[in-house]
Nucleic acid binder design. Sequence first.
DNA 1: TACCTTATTATGTATAGACATAATATCTAT
DNA 2: ATAGATATTATGTCTATACATAATAAGGTA
Lengths: 233, 233
Amino acid sequence: MSAIQKTSYVDVKNAILKRIHDTVWAPGSLMPGEVALSEEFGCARATVNRALRELASDGVIERKRKAGTRIKSSPTRQAKFVIPRIREEIEATGFDYRYALIERTEETPPDWMRARMGRKGGDDVLHLRCMHYAGSRAFQYEDRWINLASVPKARVQAFEDINPNEWLIREVPFSDAEVIFSTVNADQMLSEMLNVPLGAALFTLERITWFKAMPLTYAKLYFHAGYQMTTRL
Amino acid sequence: MSAIQKTSYVDVKNAILKRIHDTVWAPGSLMPGEVALSEEFGCARATVNRALRELASDGVIERKRKAGTRIKSSPTRQAKFVIPRIREEIEATGFDYRYALIERTEETPPDWMRARMGRKGGDDVLHLRCMHYAGSRAFQYEDRWINLASVPKARVQAFEDINPNEWLIREVPFSDAEVIFSTVNADQMLSEMLNVPLGAALFTLERITWFKAMPLTYAKLYFHAGYQMTTRL
DNA sequence: TACCTTATTATGTATAGACATAATATCTAT
DNA sequence: ATAGATATTATGTCTATACATAATAAGGTA
């Protein structure tokens, strides 16, 4: 009835995960090479390779050419967080998304920002302060700086009808980004903007974006009180 | 001197990303199939396949058998956060890691917890309250519940010399986990434990872990003031 | 001993060909 | 027209083979 089942890369993955958990292969130790494993499991080396490649990207093992593959002594469990576009995040909950520009100025970047973005931040930056609403409720306050040396087109953009993020995604490609989650107590300005008590704990997301070592933009997003980010692993 | 360079899956990836950004292929639209692309790029279908597979796992495109591959209309940028083991996180900064158990009780789970962990939470749980220190500084307060129905071994474990996380990782395999980042204002207890002012904004990480629909453990971790999580994409 | 050159080796990637599978499109009998 | 069987098709995966590359080990020379 059933033909012989070929061993899939998923099977190999599971078999290896089981051995790691049963400490057949101890943490930190070297495990057999791809050729040995492919013989043992009765499959092609490419199959083992894919299994190991995925395990490595999952953070379970570490691979080095010639040196071989070893079990990570501290399996760095990693969580993938989807950073949603705010319009979709809000519209997904059934509310209308509304955006408002509060202030738009051209400045020379403050020192702390220059430090964050690297030495290339010597030029003028466009500073935008804006709000994002879900229906009638304040959802997020955004503090945005755009490097005018690397994004000159921003100088002639009003940002009154489109939010900086959507505009940037459409207009400017980026190569690297850094994301920082942290918290802050609401100060006077934030408490008024987000309609929360003074001192409320707010979730913040900072994002710095580069294109090949050239800083493009820095944003700090302050979420409404009670905001949370969820993921499964 | 230099032989003809074969087109790598990285090249294909980049070429496709460029086209998506230049809206050669509009968001939501169908892009050419693997065979067509492999002919165009002059490489094997497997090469294109790997490029597309990775782009899909990066959240740039969506693939379905027979239906084809289409550009995601909202490219869900995702950030991979490494959730470090606290001992390593602390020792990496040069401080000594110290752990202290504050309280260990067996309880019936409160309603809010039962709701979080699913219906299987009807049994007894082990409730642990503990602290993690970096040198002499309070680093993290941990509120941990362990489902004794699914982890009976925990009943005979004192948790005085080993922290719950390290013990669980070693003893209990899990299949699924949910992670939630949020914030909270320090209450009286937290302000004393973490040595922060009353009301300070604290970063919190909740984690629920299952093994095949069976809830194993729920933990809520409260970090010291100023804690932040960083990642690059 | 210190330093440079040269194997050696495990992983990394590319390829052509084959079959599997899921989802859609088409055809057929009622 | 409609429900069910059948064909078609794009992706998904496995195989065997080949060559590339990085890192280590081994060997030889000053």
